[in-house]
Design a protein around this nucleic acid. Structure first.
Length: 912
RNA sequence: GCGAGCGUGGCGAAACUGGUAGACGCAGCGGACUUAAAAUCCGUUCGCCCUAAAGGCGGUGCGGGUUCAACUCCCGCCGCUCGCACCA
């Protein structure tokens, strides 16, 4: 019997598949009515090399793509590269190479690695987002969006790293500090390019309801992110104003300093419980007042320095400052309320101002208690007594009956909201409105390695779009990256940014900001439908044929941003005439897969004697092991006193080790092949984490495929855990996958030896598995496999979303190795058989308390004796006493003490 | 703080509408084959007690409840993971 030799078999089939171009997606004409299936995994960033952790994502998509094709679909399964981004610039800075070279080198290496995995990918459609042939169309689309009013410029607060001189994304700010420079991040107001995502807020939210093949979790996260709240906008007239303000010019956005203050609320029913107004620290009116009130100015400054880090917000006390303004209550001209600036009011939500209704909101209550502001409860909880109900330190935020509220008294919360809004409209003091948490998308990045924004700044004409015929605006390649010259290399390029104004022809400057790389990934799935189109981003017909993506596979980390942006883009593209896509949804079905995780290994820090250290090639290393050695300065101080003699301290510093550098003996980790004084050197085993370069807990794909083959890698990452959960890469797991692959080979090999390669209809049994040769492929035909399939179907019905949905035909959801096929009966099954044979009561340990149904007892007795084969009882289908063999579940039998369950479509007729 | 999810052997896990908990796989253990190892094959694997053979008891994070019957439903805790985070 032969053994499976992946080194022979895998290259052979890779070559055959490539030569036969079996992975090529057919054009709609060629497809001749075949249904289409667009299978896509989130495309990778070319960071370097592929490790086995990456492979899970692509293998899942691959399985679905192959399955679809085998079922007669016209499959599109492409691959590309999300190739713009910061790491390329960092690599350039650290190693003095060009981002372009670094990126394309990585792409070449990773492409070869992916090919080793034997993925069924249509490589003819490959592209990278940093190809000018790609971003040229992106620039054209940007112009189209601009024309359509979906692009605009706005001064916006940004995270600014004062050391690197660049804007940082929110994710790049860690504990209020720049992730790379470590410098405290400042907020700056910068003119930013914006995408008007909010134009589609309503649709983006409503359409989530139709995404029934998306995980609930992702749908929920998107809903929360869009964050719709309904309520009212209320204008509060100013009653008293400080004299200084009277004389000043009006704040931004207002025609007059005494214009009413606009407030957003979801609870206009609590208006009669109002006790103050509060403005955000950076509300225009607060800023205006700060000009003559030093205490307010200081308050604003304090809020700006604090506040950013999340832990701070948790601890921060609610503080504020009285602005000296009084406003009139909309329902009562004579009722005046104070106006504060308060640190807990967000300038970015609503109008940046609130009215405080302390009894109904915890924050307002904390604030009112701190500043001794009077308030009264206006919502009576169900069952509470109006005479005794009081609020002291805990607000009542739920619904109830309104009281203490004049014309709203006695109404429910719901009715009172409607009534209050009616009244506000009548008085012209307010109106119903919808507020969104979603904000427009700032896409400017002060970076080199990104798509240039096709705009020109002209002194006379202002900001002018670049004419479409001048596209692409290509990135210049002769740029410098130096640590000591921070900022955007495009900005300091000697010639690139100087140009002529397309409108008036006078000297002008190019926009040097580039687009956020999320823009690149917001339409790549559409480009794959027509990847080499030179005149348009893609052909409208082709895109309409292929889109939406039938199955999208990727990590949850993109649950909000990427997926939301892509949903925005398809709508914007549709409205700009690029594409027809009913519903506007790019991804019909989404699956978020689990990560591949691995133990981490850490070399511990260890002090050394000077005699243990030597210098090799100018680097200090430990003599015995060759480990790099670090030093500490000449002395150490503690509280001003020298605690250590001034001498150099040598030590081996803490370092992450790759699994290759570690050997495991009896559950303990040691440095592989290294000893110190004849002893193995212990290594600390760290937490199990997602495979990543930084923690070095990666298993390189090349080496693994050489040793074990792609099949083992693919089988392992799919079978060890359910696809949506993390899978831990372990030696024993690899061994299991290896054994399984060998078993399948030996079975098929034996079959082929006996019958030859093509013997349709022939069966062969092996370890409980039977195979049938059908049309050159082997199909499992054994009974147990069919049960597994049934189970898969049940699981699909239950898990109505996600991966289960992807495999809408007959496949087990959880591809456990040999599930139900290669094994042998366990004890549970034997026990079950014994029970069925009547040697053991059916209901186990509960039988002594069990009151049997009349028909049941007879049947159990009749079964006694243990003769003959047991009925097929595997797979959880419980044997049931004959008398009740109609459906055991469903509505309860109305007859007293009967434990049977009538048919689900119960028609008033008992079956027992 | 709010929201979502989860908690079952040495490990990955299964258990449908409440109906024999631990299917299936991995690792392990015992055996066969072998000079030996690997591979393969056979057996075994939740814990405890008992037995000649049977068998019995306990067990799904903890404490209650509903039910003839609870991993499953309800109430209250504990723990973990993820998301949002002063959103008015």
């Amino acid at each position: 019997m032969s053994r499976y030799n992946h080194r022979e078999v895998e290259p052979k089939w890779r070559e055959r598949w490539a030569a036969a171009k079996i992975d090529r997606a057919l054009s709609p004409d060629e497809a001749k009515g075949k249904p289409k299936a667009y299978i896509l995994e989130m495309f990778p960033y070319p960071s370097g090399r592929i490790h086995v952790g990456h492979s899970r994502n692509y293998t899942m998509g691959d399985v679905i793509a192959r399955f679809r094709r085998a079922n007669g679909y016209n499959v599109l399964h492409p691959m590309g590269w999300d190739a713009f981004g910061l790491p390329a610039e960092n690599a350039a800075m650290e190693r003095g190479i060009h981002p372009k070279g670094w990126t394309y080198d990585n792409i070449a290496a990773m492409r070869e690695q992916l090919k080793l995995l034997g993925l069924a990918i249509d490589w003819s459609r490959e592209f990278a987002t940093c190809d000018a042939s790609y971003y040229k169309h992106q620039q054209a689309m940007f112009l189209a969006f601009w024309k359509k009013g979906l692009v605009y410029r706005k001064k916006q607060k940004v995270n600014w790293d004062p050391v690197d001189n660049t804007v940082l994304a929110n994710e790049q700010v860690v504990d209020g500090k720049g992730w790379r420079s470590g410098a405290p991040v400042e907020t700056r107001e910068l003119e930013q390019w914006m995408f008007r995502v909010t134009a589609y807020a309503d649709d983006l939210l409503a359409a989530i309801g139709g995404l029934d093949k998306w995980p609930d979790k992702v749908r929920l996260m998107q809903s929360n992110w869009i964050g719709r709240s309904q309520g009212a906008r209320i204008w509060w007239d100013i009653a008293i104003v400080p004299d200084q303000l009277r004389a000043m010019s009006p704040p931004t956005g207002q025609s007059h300093a005494r214009d009413p203050i606009e407030v957003f609320t979801t609870r206009p029913d609590t208006l009669f419980g109002a006790s103050f107004l509060a403005l955000a620290p950076d509300h225009p009116l607060t800023k205006t007042i700060a000009e003559f009130r030093p205490d307010v100015a200081k308050f604003i400054a304090d809020c700006a320095t604090l506040g950013t880090s999340e832990a701070d917000i948790e601890k921060a006390e609610k503080v504020g400052v009285d602005l000296g303004i009084r406003v009139k209550h909309p329902f009562d001209e004579s009722w005046e309320l104070p106006v504060y600036a308060a640190n807990f009011v967000l300038s970015t939500y609503g109008s940046g101002a609130i009215f405080g209704s302390p009894a109904g909101d915890q924050r307002d209550l904390d604030f009112a208690n701190k500043y001794k502001l009077p308030f009264k409860p206006v919502v009576l909880p169900p069952g509470a007594d109006a005479a005794t109900h009081t609020i002291t330190t805990e607000a009542y935020v739920d619904d109830g009956v309104i009281y203490n509220s004049r014309f709203l008294d006695g109404l429910s919360t719901r009715d009172a909201i409607a009534r209050a809004i009616d009244e506000l409209v009548k008085l012209e003091k307010g109106e119903a409105t919808t507020q969104w948490r979603l904000r427009d998308w700032g896409v400017s990045r002060q970076r080199y390695w990104g798509c240039p924004i096709p705009a020109v700044h002209c002194a006379k004409c202002g900001v002018v779009p670049v004419p479409e015929k001048d596209l692409p605006i290509a990135l210049p390649e002769d740029v410098t990256f130096e640590r000591d010259k921070p900022g955007n290399p495009l900005d300091r390029h000697p010639t690139w940014k100087h140009t002529k104004c397309p409108a008036c022809g006078s000297a002008a400057q190019r926009e040097t900001d580039t687009l956020d790389t999320f823009v690149d990934s917001s339409w790549y799935f559409a480009r794959f439908t027509d990847a080499h189109n030179e005149t348009a981003p893609f052909d409208k017909e082709l895109a309409s044929y292929w889109l939406p993506v039938d199955q999208y596979v990727g990590g949850v980390e993109h649950a909000v941003l990427h997926l939301l942006y892509a949903r925005f883009f398809t709508r914007a593209m549709r409205d700009c005439g690029y594409l027809e896509l009913p519903g506007g949804e790019p991804f019909a079905s989404l699956f978020t897969q689990g990560m591949v995780v691995h133990e981490t290994y850490r070399r511990k820090q260890r002090g050394l004697m000077p005699s243990d250290v030597e210098t090799v090639d100018g680097h200090l290393v430990e003599k015995a092991t060759g480990f790099p050695v670090s030093t500490w300065g000449q002395s150490q101080f503690s509280g001003g006193s020298v605690i250590q003699a001034p001498s150099t301290t040598y030590f081996v510093s803490q370092a992450w080790l790759t699994p290759d550098e570690v050997e495991i003996v009896d559950g303990k980790a040691y440095e592989r092949g290294k000893t110190l004084d004849g002893e193995r050197i212990p290594v600390e085993i760290g937490p199990i984490e997602k495979m990543s370069k930084s923690k070095k807990n990666v298993v390189d794909l090349d080496a693994f495929v050489t040793d074990f083959g792609a099949d083992v890698a693919r089988w392992f990452v799919l079978s060890d855990s359910p696809p949506e959960r993390d899978v831990e890469w372990t030696a024993s797991g690899v061994k299991g996958a290896w054994n399984f692959v060998q078993r399948v080979w030996s079975l098929v090999d034996a079959h082929v030896r006996e019958y030859g390669p093509h013997h349709p209809g022939r069966h062969r049994r092996h370890r409980g598995l039977s195979l049938q040769c059908r049309g050159g492929a082997f199909v499992r035909t054994d009974q147990r496999h069919r049960q597994t399939q049934r189970r898969g179907r049940r699981l699909r019905v239950r898990a109505r979303r996600g991966f289960a949905h992807a495999q809408s035909a007959d496949r087990p959801v959880h591809a456990a190795p040999g599930r139900g096929v290669l094994g042998k009966p366990g004890r549970g099954r034997l026990r079950r058989h014994r029970a069925l044979a009547g040697r053991r009561p059916c209901f186990g340990r509960t039988q002594h308390r069990h009151t049997p149904h009349p028909g049941e007892r007879q049947e159990a007795r009749g079964n006694r004796g243990g003769q003959g084969p047991a009925p097929e009882g595997r797979g959880g289908r419980r044997p049931r006493p004959r008398g009740c063999e109609t459906l055991p579940r469903g509505p309860k039998c109305p007859q007293d003490h009967c434990r049977c369950r009538p048919d689900r479509e119960y028609r008033g007729e008992l079956r027992c």
